[in-house]
């Protein structure tokens, strides 16, 4: 009797162990088995995490670029002789024009947002009619440049000679960084000329369509430096 029950307990133990193992194997797969029914959404999740990881990487590298620039600036400022000082001034001027340093000056601030109110009032309408498109931003930037803007930044992304303004799906990329509404455009230049350029330019139809748009003048704007790297591999003096 004892032997029989020992054997039965052993059998049960063995089977319980195997069930536990099977169950763990199943559980390990269970979280992803739910989204497995929707392979597309799983793929999207993967892509989103990839994008997030890459953006973190970019931020880390931008930090490295910044520290190297600070180091470089420290080295540059050590120079004392007249000749070196002249070179330094030239360098500063070049950096200012290239957009590699934070700058300050008078200018305007333009704030744009999607027409959420209009979209709610017209739920069956074309949603494209109620969002700010990258063409709008592009037009505004061009108008600001025409009005003599010396430095422009959109959502803290400084526009420099290689900056792009690009539409990717439903986001806008500036300096390959995603920006989202509300869009805040800072521009340094003659405030009244810049304000006139945009209010009688691209902002005019946007205001008519009911987009929440505001333009304000500021005597001391601060624009950030361009965060990326700026290398010319193919271009040389001719």
């Amino acid at each position: 009797m004892l032997r029989q029950s020992l054997r039965s307990v052993f059998t049960l133990t063995l089977i319980c162990f195997m069930i536990g193992g099977l169950f763990a194997l199943y559980l390990r797969y269970a979280p992803s088995s739910q989204s497995q029914t929707n392979a597309l959404s799983q793929r999207m999740d993967n892509l989103v995490s990839t994008i997030n990881n890459l953006e973190q990487e970019i931020a880390a590298y931008e930090g490295i670029v910044q520290t190297s620039r600070d180091e470089l600036a420290g080295l540059e400022n050590q120079a004392q002789t007249e000749w070196l000082r002249k070179l330094q001034e030239e360098l500063h001027g070049a950096k200012l024009r290239a957009g590699l340093t934070p700058v300050t000056g008078p200018g305007i601030v333009i704030t744009l947002d999607d027409n959420v109110v209009g979209q709610k009032a017209d739920p069956n309408g074309d949603p494209n009619a109620y969002i700010i498109h990258y063409e709008d931003l592009l037009a505004i930037v061009s108008e600001l440049k025409t009005g003599g803007a010396e430095a422009i930044a959109i959502n803290e992304q400084r526009l420099i000679t290689t900056s792009e303004l690009r539409c990717v799906g439903n986001v806008i990329l500036v300096n390959t960084t995603r920006i989202a509404p509300p869009f805040v455009i800072h521009a340094i230049g003659d405030p009244s000329i810049l304000a006139d350029m945009v209010t009688y330019g691209r902002l005019d139809p946007l205001i008519t369509e009911g987009f929440p748009v505001s333009v304000s003048e500021d005597q001391a704007l601060i624009l950030p430096a361009y965060k990326g790297e700026l290398q010319f591999k193919y271009t040389t003096f001719s």
Partner: peptide, 13 residues
Amino acid sequence: VPILALFLGILAG
């Protein structure tokens, strides 16, 4: 004993 084995099995799995 079998219950313990169940948890051991989960761990092993």
